[in-house]
Write a protein that binds this DNA or RNA. Structure first.
Lengths: 205, 205
DNA sequence: CCCAGTATCATCCGAATGGATGATAACGTC
DNA sequence: GACGTTATCATCCATTCGGATGATACTGGG
């Protein structure tokens, strides 16, 4: 009877998976807030409610924990593969995602700022060749004006979509909204939709 | 004769001002690259070519040096007061500035990411009420479409203009250019000009 | 009921870092 | 040319942090 679980799986005192998740959650919060160098393993362990040695036990140390975090997010990010949506909706989706996964986005942006050439671990992050090809296709279909360079357009839109993460103080000052709130996400997404709509070939200057 | 300078001001061995500047320069590079927590005072001193104790001597320690850096940049940033330029040129100017003062921008973005509520030291940074009023004026004059919210527009454009700093890896991958190069600045500024041009009231959807 | 395995914890340790202390030498002045 | 000032430096110290070690207790199975 391998399936016979212990009487109370959910609240037993020793649970490796629960501990791992707790550590990952706490680490995400701490790393996102203080950065890779500023984060303290003792704080992470404290926040997770476990002994700090468990970080070494499960992840082999601070760096291992960080890597596990980045690793786990690389899978999460391929959820925007729905190329059939209008371009404005894709951008709006980026906005929503950056607000919903705020801490991950913050972590990611810190990684970008550090600008360490990733040790050849795939095509890294952000838009790539596929997205550029997609924009070119949309240009030919007239959804995007032909005089815009796909590379720079994607760059600008990705940066703009991340504004809630990269400029939270400006969000509060300019809009009076909480950059982590759904209201900000909704209204900002709508505004970016309008901007993107004006980039179509039909919208002539 | 208080004006009598020593025979060789430029290459004398003890020069407080020169040392201060060297420390500030080195600190800018180090803080921008590694962040407030990751930066090492010994590295800064080494890069400046002076003893690390001089950091305490002149700035009262690591934090004081950082504060002096931020302080000195708050003055430098009010150089975009030329409200008479077309909006597209203002945005292009932001792009150029973020590339030319790359390290300052990087430092600034790190500060934003940390998102520590500034201890009431003025209206902080980035666009403020004045810029919003300016956008509203331009809307009334038809330079900017009326259905765009000035707050979100400024937010999106500031974030977009900073893309070379916030997403250097994407710049390389998408455009193949060096995000610190003048060529990137020029071409990206031109692309943002075209985007902004399409946001005018005349460019109807 | 006991045992092996492992998840968890308390404690300790070496390394690194930021800052303090006192010595030193260059500079301006009389 | 001698002296007080101060810019500069070599060295030391306290603290902090990450990680290692060994002890402990919970778990499931025989």
């Amino acid at each position: 009877m391998r399936l016979r679980r212990s009487p109370a799986v959910h609240d037993r005192q020793r649970d490796a998976d629960r501990t791992r998740r707790a550590l990952l959650d706490a680490a995400l919060a701490e790393f996102a807030a203080k950065g890779r160098a500023g984060a303290r393993v003792s704080v992470i362990a404290e926040r997770a409610g476990v002994n700090k040695q468990l970080i070494s036990y499960y992840f082999g140390g601070k760096d291992g924990l960080y890597r596990a975090l980045v690793e786990g997010w690389r899978q999460h990010e391929d959820e925007f593969a729905s190329r059939d949506l209008p371009f404005a909706e894709i951008v709006a989706g980026y906005v929503r995602s950056s607000v919903e996964h705020r801490e991950m986005s913050r972590l990611f942006l810190r990684e970008c700022l550090d600008d360490v050439p990733p040790p050849e671990q795939g095509p890294s992050v952000g838009p790539g060749e596929a997205e550029m090809a997609d924009v070119r296709r949309r240009q030919q279909q007239g959804e995007i004006a032909a005089d815009l360079d796909p590379a720079f357009l994607l760059l600008a839109l990705q940066a703009a979509a991340s504004a809630g993460v990269s400029f939270p103080a400006d969000v509060r000052m300019l809009t009076g909204l909480d950059p982590a709130s759904a209201e900000f996400a909704d209204r900002y997404a709508e505004q970016l939709r309008r901007i993107v709509a004006r980039l179509s070939a039909q919208a002539e200057v």
